[in-house]
Simulated scan of single mutants.
Amino acid sequence: MSEWKAKRFWDAASVEEVDGGFTVRLDGRPVKTPAKAPLVVPTQALAACIAAEWDAQEGEVNPTNMPFTRSANAAIDKVTQQHAEVADLIAAYGDADLTCYRADSPAELVARQAQAWDPLIEWIHQRHGVRLVPVSGVMHQPQDIRALERLSAQTHALDAFALTAFHDLVGMSGSLVIGFAALENLHPAEHLWALSRIDETYQEELWGKDEEASELAAKKQSDFLHAKAFYDLSRPI
């Protein structure tokens, strides 16, 4: 038996201000999340992007073409309900942050990592009072517990929409430091993504590109850039 798929039943999507933010209506009917909660987002700009995704649907509704809708659903149905658990999961990256694990050879890669990541570690220290220590090799070396507690507290302080974006910014880059740098506009998102790919870029220069790996990297980059856009749109002006 074929799986039932929703089909477009509306003529136009619109944005309406409601208690707690903004919602999207389809011919006056409010959009709900998969868990049947009201789809209410913090800003008119984000609601407008979601409405545009619904307006772009033709025939069968394809959720894969609706990234802002999916992220809003995740923020409402999942992150709001499990905020502490999600924050703990993300904050754990601080103890094994990408920017802290350095190669011990070859010299060129060591230098590239230092040039890319040392400024990030100094920035998180100056901006957030957190001192992370770089280490050579792949063996785990715990960071100072006070630094990790501070990063965890700042992660837990994010609202559900920010934490939804932060989840992908950190998960795709492998770095809590890069995630915070993205939230605070230290560099453009494309540049921060490139900083997270120092090792992979070096290996590609040596051995050439692997088609499957390149496709996976492109998907991760798209998710990273979307997360940044979702975060920005969810912030009140």
Rank of each mutant, 00 (worst) to 15 (best):
T43H: 03
L39M: 08
A52T: 13
E53T: 04
G59K: 13
Q57I: 04
P34C: 04
V40T: 15
V61I: 15
E53R: 07
P42T: 11
K32R: 15
A56G: 12
E60M: 01
E58S: 14
D55Q: 14
I50A: 14
P34A: 06
A56E: 03
A47R: 12
A35I: 05
Q44W: 09
L39C: 08
Q57S: 03
I50F: 04
Q44A: 05
K32F: 00
P38W: 10
A37P: 00
A51I: 05
A35S: 11
G59P: 01
L46W: 10
K36L: 09
T33G: 13
T43G: 04
T33I: 08
E58R: 14
A51Y: 03
K36D: 03
E58C: 08
V41I: 09
V41F: 12
T33D: 04
A56Q: 10
T33Q: 15
A37Y: 00
W54S: 04
W54E: 01
L46F: 02
E53Y: 05
P34L: 09
A52R: 09
L46M: 10
P34G: 06
K32I: 03
A48M: 09
A52W: 02
I50N: 07
A37M: 04
C49P: 02
K36E: 13
D55H: 09
G59Y: 06
E58V: 13
E60H: 03
I50L: 11
Q57H: 07
K36S: 13
A48G: 06
E58A: 10
V61H: 02
A47C: 07
A35N: 09
E53V: 09
V41Y: 10
A51R: 05
A48V: 06
P34T: 04
T33N: 13
E60Y: 01
K32D: 00
K32W: 00
L39D: 07
V61L: 06
A37Q: 00
P42W: 07
A56P: 02
Q44V: 09
A45R: 15
L46V: 07
W54T: 06
P42I: 08
